[in-house]
Design a protein around this nucleic acid. Structure first.
Lengths: 350, 350
DNA sequence: TTGTAGGCGTTATCAC
DNA sequence: GTGATAACGCCTACAA
């Protein structure tokens, strides 16, 4: 029922190929012809049939975002995909979501399977997939194009995508804490297989070192990116004989867990404890007090990664790794270090 | 490079059509033949080419989720789409996201445009699109199939999808407040064009009526679904000569705004003010105290809506509107009404 | 600068 | 139950 390229050609009085040229921005079309074709297309409300285009061109005009399923629901992923959609729109591509279980026995097989099924022209990978050397190597073998969104190019496999220097951002966050007078700063680290963990932890250590503060292993607790991990981490740290006056959590969800546990103990934030997060999720603005955290420009990252990927798809030598800026969001969860030892925990205030 | 249906046919010693029949679960294939085909397909790692399938079958095997762009980032949308993906996976469909601006001059045109461009076999609509009579009528005219996710079938246009009785849920929430002794209950209503507003407001009124409490217009403030709207709404309500002892916000984001404003004024929750939300976003668990709210099974809703839509696509007489259950999540933001008048606001406690 | 022929990999039609 | 053949709508290659 919809108009076909043939109809447009007939209306414009040109061949199908000319219409095709116009729609694909190919050269060798006289301006006047181009205008005539465009008018005809508009009159007929012509849109190229994506399936036909894909079949004939041996492409799917599809890029997929590969991420860890448990992260579904996070605003991070949503922002990335919306950014990707922006980039895709302009290139007549579409974007699809592939939540896969990174922890599963054969996550690389799952990625391959997804590729075989949907035949995307390329992938956008976020951590932990973006940090997985084996996966990247396999994709290279298969000749599958991909863009990575990550904290650092680790292995030279990453060719295009975005990089946000999480290590530097974390160090800056620690510097902020130090400037507020904090000397004992705890860290609830990210989950083990996740790239974010290493860089944020490294930045934490950098920050301490630069401030001339010792690195105390007792102040670092293995955590995770979840609210519950934050609670557990805070319990551990606040139960220490000499608890920290500030806690840097590896992401906002776990930072919220830290705040939660502090409140449960009757601690006031930031009077008794300062808390820092990472990601700047909507939640970080919505909690009280507002959470001091690191903003990542997720939507831009998604857009840029897709743009670079599309460039790479067009031309295998094109595209680059783009550094994107982070931004400290100083809110009310961070304040001066208590001058005196913290008061004994009061009973719950509810 | 990947195996084609022809290769599978040759390997299995049957015709292409027979392979096609096997892959599409069509009848008239002997069990033994089917097994042979499946073995051949497995050996060759054959996957049907989606573009070719779409072109030949005059379908796209694609459903798209239409939602209001500003809602991007909300976990609500993310959960819906993940649910849709589950349903799609099984039917060899894929799902795509279409964030559109509902407030734009011609949002119906935008939907039509999106359909023309991507040719989905069907749409899943969430509010406010799902509540838009004009849009639904237009889609019917165009013969476009759709499923709605909404609070109530309003107009008979909705044929398949999910319904969650937000009115009843809201009334129940008010009943909960009343049971805690609250008599003056404020409401920060949702945004005007949004279906959610009307049903949640109606439920609020139902709840009051059933408790024998008067409906006081002064206690209802036009709000929105944003954190900022919650702040503004709370300011208004808490500035009243006789402020409410409980506030029911139309969603969790605005409820967080209410909590924020209460804290800014030095009020303790729930001692001085009880707060209720709607949606059960991750944030509602992460704030302190935890927000009492209404859980919607978003992932199920997405899955069911997609399932019903796919059924409708297969058979125009199939599919139905499925009622899905809500669930009150009683957390710590709701507590007994203060027996005495609220103490005068203290200075900020930070 | 423009046009023609053939094929992409599947499904639909209809015959056997 | 099974198979041959013609679409499906576009793009690539080559020709003019």
């Amino acid at each position: 029922m919809p108009a076909r390229i043939e109809d447009v050609a007939a209306t414009a009085g040109v061949s199908m190929k000319t219409v095709s040229r116009v729609f694909n921005n190919e050269p060798n079309v006289r301006e006047k012809t181009r205008a005539r074709v465009e008018a005809a297309a508009k009159a007929l409300n012509y849109r190229p049939n994506p399936s036909a285009r894909g079949l004939a061109g041996n492409r799917s005009y599809l890029v997929s975002l590969v991420f860890d399923d448990p992260a579904a629901g996070s605003s991070y992923i949503m922002e990335i995909i919306v950014g990707m959609l922006v980039a895709c729109e302009q290139s007549r591509y579409s974007a699809m979501l592939r939540p896969l279980e990174y922890a599963s026995a054969d996550h690389i097989g799952a990625v391959e399977d997804s590729i075989a099924r949907y035949r995307p022209d390329g992938l956008v990978l976020v951590p932990p997939f973006a940090d997985d050397v084996k996966l990247l190597r396999r994709l290279d073998e298969l000749g599958v194009r991909y863009a990575t969104i990550s904290a650092k190019a680790k292995i030279g496999h990453e060719r295009v995508g975005t990089i946000l220097d999480e290590r530097k951002a974390s160090a800056e966050m620690i510097a902020h804490a130090v400037a507020l007078g904090h000397r004992r700063i705890g860290h609830v680290a990210g989950p083990l297989p996740h790239g974010g963990r290493a860089w944020r932890l490294a930045g934490y250590r950098d920050g301490l070192r630069r401030a001339g503060l010792p690195y105390d292993e007792a102040l670092v607790v293995d955590g995770g990116f979840s609210f519950e991990a934050g609670i557990a981490g805070a319990r551990h740290l606040l139960d220490l004989d000499e608890p920290p006056t500030a806690i840097f959590a590896a992401n906002d969800d776990s930072a919220c867990g830290v705040m939660h546990e502090a409140f449960e103990r009757g601690l006031a934030i930031p009077r008794d404890l300062s808390v820092f997060g990472f990601d700047d999720t909507p939640t970080s603005r919505h909690v009280w007090p507002g959470l001091t955290t690191v903003r990542q420009p997720c939507r831009d990252m998604g857009r840029i990664a897709a743009e670079q990927l599309l460039a790479l798809i067009r031309d295998p030598t094109a595209g680059e790794l783009v550094h994107v800026p982070y931004e400290l969001q100083i809110r009310q969860s961070s304040g001066p270090a208590p001058s005196r030892p913290r008061p004994r925990p009061r009973s719950r205030t509810r």
